[in-house]
Write a protein that binds this DNA or RNA. Structure first.
Length: 280
DNA sequence: AGCGTCTCCTGCTTGC
DNA sequence: TGCAAGCAGGAGACGC
């Protein structure tokens, strides 16, 4: 599932193919994504040049030379596949949008579950007001610091695992890296957010664990990025070496620990943890 | 207001 | 073997 590291790699990949290039054509095969693709989508993009691409949390922002901004979220299964027009373009199921760029790159947006979306904003101001309500700071930015996090957690009764999933608290962490970061920090997923906020040590540890895990995953993804061109588009995401995620009943990777990884449900989401390394 | 649950979607896995 | 149920998860909607 694309969380911050996967989105960052996809953003870097898109930058290579899109930046300073012009959309020659756009084809929409399915407009029913999380938000319906608007009627004017094609005409808004066609013949426009990409002047900037950035990522905040799990969002990718593509700025065009008419100042319009494409805001992209990959949902659960969204991905972009890049080919050259000279390549054999193998048809792939669940291809919803196809872009042809002025550098003869064919970029396909593929999204099996269609939880992703691409919306267009006319200005940066519109983008800001959209995100003010629903997004906190980016998890690997310097703005994600102890003062910020303590402030966000201090009155929250929810489990810390749930807090990490709340994009208004920290942007970019999803269900997989939330479990991984808590394991690395040695913090129980059940610990209440307001209690974490009372301990500077825990807060600092949690922040550095989150940043370490996300940056480390970007490094791993970065080394496998060349495979993207030849990918079949079905799997899509690189595999990080998880310590807890999807490791139910397997031995804890901590050499000094003889426990096994537990899997439980927290607010309808699976949480993986080690009950001996992660104590409240 | 704050928090938990449901929902959208498809494909893979599990169980009868 | 075949079918149906269960599960996976991001984030907005909804309900208490």
């Amino acid at each position: 599932m694309p969380e911050l590291p996967e989105v960052e790699i996809i953003k870097r990949n898109l930058t290579e193919s899109l930046l300073n290039k012009t959309f020659l054509s756009v084809e929409v095969y399915c407009d029913k994504l999380r938000y319906k693709i608007p009627q004017n989508f094609i005409e808004t993009i066609k013949n426009k040049k990409v002047v900037n691409i950035e990522r905040i949390a799990k969002y990718i922002f593509v700025t065009l030379d008419n100042n319009n901004i494409l805001v992209i979220h990959l949902g659960m299964t969204g991905n972009f596949l890049v080919n050259h027009t000279d390549d054999e373009i193998i048809p792939i199921k669940h291809t919803h949008i196809k872009f042809l760029m002025s550098n003869f790159r064919v970029i396909r947006y593929i999204d099996i579950r269609r939880f992703g979306f691409i919306i267009i904003f006319e200005s940066g101001k519109d983008v800001a007001s959209f995100f003010d309500k629903r997004l906190g700071v980016d998890a690997i930015s310097s703005k994600f610091n102890s003062e910020y996090l303590i402030n966000k957690l201090k009155n929250k009764k929810i489990d810390i695992k749930n807090a990490l999933l709340d994009q208004k608290i920290v942007g970019g962490v999803g269900n997989i890296y939330a479990s991984e970061a808590l394991y690395r920090a040695g913090i129980s997923p059940f610990e209440r957010s307001e209690d974490i906020a009372k301990s500077n040590k825990k807060v600092d540890n949690l922040i550095s664990s989150i940043k370490f895990i996300l940056k480390d995953a970007i490094k791993v993804g970065g080394s496998t990025i060349s495979d993207y061109k030849n990918m079949d588009g079905e799997s899509g995401y690189f595999q990080y070496k998880f310590n807890v995620y999807n490791r139910e009943n397997l031995e804890c990777n901590n050499k000094n620990c003889s426990s096994h990884i537990k899997k439980i449900r927290q607010s309808g989401r699976s949480t993986f943890y080690c009950d001996s390394c992660q104590k409240e």
